[in-house]
């Protein structure tokens, strides 16, 4: 791999990182509006408000950058970057198509992805603590508790796929994928996707930012560009979790079309899952904090363990 190739892959990942989350955000605007019988943004950009998020970005960039007087300045300012950057690295490792259509093939890619996604939460903890605000601190605490509970089922569900494929490499997993993995790994897919939603703090698992209870959780004191970075990290998170679920459980680029169009399948599956994320947000109310914990420990983790056992048994039976 020469230098030009590396630079090209990095730039492509960066472009994906900056554009697809906006597409998802705009889709959320419109889908949510229509699911609620509204129209959503209609003016920015002319045609059905397609440029709404660009306008939002310009607005955020113009706002004053405020750091509360009692805050821990440096940590407060560093937090959005810590929250956002891990997702960029995760995107680098997600395969889009066959034959090396991936930012950087990593041998233990599955582990890399899960590990780095966990780091992003530290940014939210930093934001919650450094804001010198009770509600932010509560948000940070809830974030930490939620992450601790949902990391486990997520890793277990991912481990089930890794066992089935016999590799930790993401392209390797997609290569090993067969159609019958869908019924075989369906429980794991459910657990992974749900835990991913919880890790992103998307409704119905958005207690850490529950705006009607604790203002906006860890982001309460943020404004302007830093707040925009947090929002961007949420939408990149949707992209990453949807793409990961598509790659791990839905077979990534496998589909009726020839392999050259495999990337289209990956994108299609990713966006379908992103739509489901939005759909769930519109449909369900927020869970209570104790319900959230109970759901993780009494439903998701047993389910993940069942899936793991099932995978092991069938794997042994096949081989």
């Amino acid at each position: 791999m020469n230098l030009f190739d590396t630079v090209l892959r990095c730039v492509a990942t960066l472009v994906v990182f900056l554009t697809l989350p906006l597409v998802i955000g705009q889709t959320e605007h419109k889908v949510m509006a229509h699911m609620q019988g509204r129209l959503g943004p209609m003016y920015a950009g002319g045609f059905h408000g397609w440029a709404q998020l660009i306008a939002d970005g310009v607005k955020f960039a113009q706002k004053e950058d405020i750091v509360p007087a009692g805050a821990d300045r440096r940590i407060f300012q560093l937090a959005p970057a810590v929250s956002l950057l891990p997702y960029l690295f995760v995107l680098l490792a997600i395969p889009v198509g066959p034959d090396g259509f991936v930012g950087q093939a990593i041998d233990a890619g599955l582990f890399f992805v899960l590990a780095v996604m966990g780091v992003g939460v530290i940014g939210k903890l930093m934001a919650g603590w450094a804001s010198a605000n009770k509600f932010s601190l509560l948000g940070g605490l809830r974030t930490a508790a939620q992450l601790m509970s949902y990391e486990l089922p997520m890793v277990l569900a991912a481990a089930s796929v890794a066992m089935a494929a016999g590799t930790l490499s993401l392209p390797g997993i997609v290569d090993a994928w067969q159609w019958y993995w869908i019924p075989w790994q369906i429980i794991g897919a459910f657990v992974f996707f749900t835990a991913g939603l919880a890790e992103l703090q998307r409704p119905p698992f958005d207690m850490p930012v529950a705006d009607s209870e604790i203002i906006f959780g860890a982001y309460t004191e943020y404004t302007g560009l830093r707040f925009a970075l947090f929002l961007l990290s949420e939408y990149v998170g949707i992209l990453v979790v949807s793409a990961l679920t598509a790659v791990l459980f839905l077979g990534g680029w496998h589909g009726p079309l020839p392999d050259q169009l495999g990337w289209l399948w990956t994108l299609l599956k990713t966006f379908a899952l992103a739509f489901v994320v939005i759909w769930l947000r519109v449909t369900y109310p927020r869970l209570r904090e104790d319900q959230l914990m109970r759901f993780a420990w009494t439903v998701l983790i047993p389910l993940a363990l069942v899936q793991l056992a099932l995978t092991g048994i069938i794997k042994v039976a096949i081989s």
């Binding site: 233990a108 590990a115 996604m117 966990g118 919650g128 930490a144």
Partner: peptide, 23 residues
């Protein structure tokens, strides 16, 4: 592999637990 395990366990879980306790 050890590097990613280090990130997953120590950065992702142990430090988060420490921060949780501190908060």
């Amino acid at each position: 592999f050890v590097a990613w395990v280090q990130v997953l366990i120590y950065l992702g879980s142990v430090v988060v637990l420490v921060l949780f306790g501190l908060m």
